[in-house]
Amino acid sequence: MSSELLNYKDISISYGEKKVLSHFDLDIKQGDRILLKGRSGAGKSTLLKMPMGFAHQTSGNLYFNNSLLDSNTVWDARKRIAYVSQDLDIYEGSVDEFIEEVFSYSFNEGKLDRTKLRRLLVYLGFEKDVLDMNFEELSGGEKQRIGIIMSVLIGKDIYLLDEITSSLDAALKEKVANYFLERKEWTLVIISHDDVWEKENVKVVPVGV
């Protein structure tokens, strides 16, 4: 058996009648950094959501750790994979309440490291009282950074990052990209229009034509 984490085999994606991607293959090994490039609507986001079971291919198979990803294995995949989308759609409650909620899940129990949380908040340019703020008071970029911090705090090793730097200023884009790229043991699959991700060791994979 190979050491591949994710294998996309002969994947085709259609939205209704419209075929957007045909016969796509991709093998992702531990420690790979993959940047998916392609025009919008080419199926990149769908490819990124598939390992979480949030979107499905029209045909072909996806394997996680050499087993077919289906409704049984997806729950294991979700334990190892973090999917971070471009916007964190939360309207109610404070940041801290949400953090408490997430760390009350049995899978995350006892994992909340407040020191690391504070360090990450400072690293990504937050004032300390952001935890008491309500989500509706946060800007898109601030929500985006909270989303990034949460996924890192959970401590997973495969990250699916969907335009996570889109609403950040140039300095923060750089910081976020560096943070992820510096951790060599992590596996990253990235969708982004920002060139901060285009560094050496990042493999660009074209999606669609």
Binding site: Y83, D89, I154
Partner: peptide, 23 residues
């Protein structure tokens, strides 16, 4: 339905189905 993305986000942060639904 309104919080669909938040719900999916909970699942991706390690929530079991019932943990994501419970709130």
């Amino acid at each position: 339905k309104r919080n669909e993305n938040r719900y999916l986000y909970s699942l991706s942060l390690g929530a079991k189905k019932h943990e994501a639904i419970l709130p």
